[in-house]
Design a protein around this nucleic acid. Structure first.
Lengths: 338, 338
DNA sequence: GCCTTTTGTGAAACCTTTTTCGCAAAACGA
DNA sequence: TCGTTTTGCGAAAAAGGTTTCACAAAAGGC
């Protein structure tokens, strides 16, 4: 029977041709029709597969990309991993998954591994300000600017914040709040705050902010909201949360405080997270274009017709109704596909 | 300055030692102390990294494993991917993520890619009955038996079904139902049905089943439940759903039918899915030990002190309260960690 | 100081593929 | 049929490691 791991040499012997001819057939280079057929038959017969390791060693090109991401459990991350994998597959690239738990040591370790593994590039979602990336390793950052030399792909977070403010204004809110958890770094999602402020100001909508520091407990929000209750009514009639995850938490707090959503207070989150079983959004939200972010990262990394790499690419966000806002009159924007 | 991609030769020259000595230091083989120090200094100075491709080519061992999984967006899959990645990382193995969308062609394509890429083994969650796996490619299946030669790791689905039935009986149910979606294949999760029946019989608990075929719409469940309403009350006081995802859907249906959960009807799902933001279970559920499944797959694949590979490994499940059952008197089993 | 033991040296083979080059054979036009 | 063009051949080098082997140098014991 055929050998366990046939090489090109075996194929050449089987087909009765030269080694170089097999290489040409395998790589689709021009070769006489009769030879091509003979070689293809031998390949089928021996069940030959090229050895990517030999190929990679010779060509110094591995068609492999590493994805650094905190985990694949949270919906936004899991979804990114999925779409990036798809975008790479479409281009016949392989993906090494590096889930880092946002541990700085592990992130750096993975970068080292990626270098040993001669990946063609790295796509990374990390908030590590001390991450060292070698010159010469193509790197695309998601959601965090890492200097002029490294392109960053993100949603248009500023526009998203602004959109949330405008939406709340359109929905008749008179006094709103912005809630954000820690992450003191200068990363892209922080622009949601500035965008929201900008939107409130342009609509003359009074607002307050509650921003937690890194170590703070979520329960600070409970206290904050409780403090703003007068005669059993929350003084805010609109809340914008920095993520859907936080919005989901706040939803529970509001329930406990006997505030009805959306009748008493409307709530908008950020990300576009959907309920896993049914496909509804978990709350009214600013949807991140995850598939487009993934596609853009891959296109940028693989240099597809890009003469110059932009330092920052912002992709458009959209609003989606998810039950925690009053429906806009006449608007048919329930459960839009992202 | 140091070369962009220094090789062992460069290190040897820098340290003034023989090539073989560098190899020994890199691989932790015994070598004189003074030599080791010299070599390590040179490695640091040149910022040398071994080339995994050269190493893999020579040793025919790549320390890389491929994970075939439908996607990383659904919680169970995303969680598996995460834990398998962790288990591999702990052993200094790399992981190629292959998300297949359960597309049979793509699954086969990925197997081919894995072979080209000389992976040391494959872990696969696939329901493809026609998947061809080469002799000699170590393969571990999750949730589906693929013949005696391929070990399968799964939760103890039978025990899980049984546990669900017993729990409903303990909670005072008098008439229960089992709901399952398609998937006509002989895979492990199907044993949940047999386990549930067994549990009902042993407790003399009357039950009914509604099992959808592959093409059927979820709305068949709406009709089924509606049919079982008499005088505004559902005739079932307990429902076991084959997955949390389905349970979540059924929860919405029950709400629409004005049935209170858990007062009128208690609901148990399967998987142990948690709400992403807050960490509560999405419903009362039979929890799959995802981390343990991951660990077992990796240990089996890498042959860790296993003389013989068992064809099936079942791991213990547990019940967790998630709000859709009446609390068991005196039981303090809210939100157990999995 | 001599003999044995330890330890590193230097060179070569090997893993599989890609690519180059001089050469020979086949195909083709006139 | 001759000369030209095309096309494959066969061998070899290169990519960067691992491993082996005969040999030499240093270290240690007495």
């Amino acid at each position: 029977m055929s050998k366990a791991n046939p090489t090109m040499k075996d194929v050449a012997a089987e087909a009765g041709v030269a080694l170089g001819t097999v290489s040409k057939v395998v790589n689709g280079l021009p070769v006489g029709e009769s030879y091509r057929v003979r070689v293809e038959e031998a390949i089928r017969k021996l069940n030959y597969q090229v050895n990517s390791y030999a190929q990679g060693l010779k060509l110094n090109k591995t068609r492999t990309v590493a994805l650094l991401i905190p985990n694949t459990q949270e919906p936004y991350y899991g979804s990114l991993a999925y779409h990036i994998n798809s975008a790479l597959l479409r281009r016949s690239y392989r993906m090494l998954l590096c889930s880092t738990d946002s541990d700085m040591g592990q992130e750096q370790e993975y970068i080292k591994m990626a270098r040993q593994n001669k990946v063609d590039g790295i796509i990374g979602l990390t908030y590590n300000p001390n991450l060292v990336i070698e010159e010469g390793t193509p790197f695309i950052a998601i959601d965090r600017s890492m200097g002029q030399k490294i392109p960053c792909v993100a949603s248009d977070n500023f526009a998203g914040g602004q959109l949330a403010a405008e939406k709340l204004a359109d929905l008749g809110c008179r006094n709103v709040a912005f809630l954000r958890t820690g992450a003191s770094l200068t990363n892209e999602p922080n622009k949601r705050k500035a965008g929201f402020e900008n939107g409130c100001l342009s609509r003359s909508l009074p607002y307050e902010m509650k921003i937690l520091n890194d170590g703070d407990s979520l329960e600070e929000f409970d206290a904050f909201l409780t403090k703003h209750i007068q005669n059993g009514r929350l003084t805010f009639d609109g809340i914008f949360c920095v993520t859907d995850s936080l919005a989901y938490y706040i939803l529970k707090v509001l329930k406990r405080l006997n505030q009805r959503v959306p009748e008493d207070v409307q709530l908008i989150g950020f990300d576009g997270t959907r309920h896993f079983g049914v496909q509804d959004y978990v709350c009214s939200t600013i949807v991140q274009p995850v598939a487009e972010i993934a596609e853009m990262c891959v296109a940028l990394l693989l240099q597809e017709n890009m003469s110059v790499k932009p330092p920052l690419v912002c992709l458009p966000v959209s609003y989606a109704y998810g039950g925690t806002t009053a429906e806009t009159p006449g608007a048919a924007n329930h459960s839009e596909q992202p």
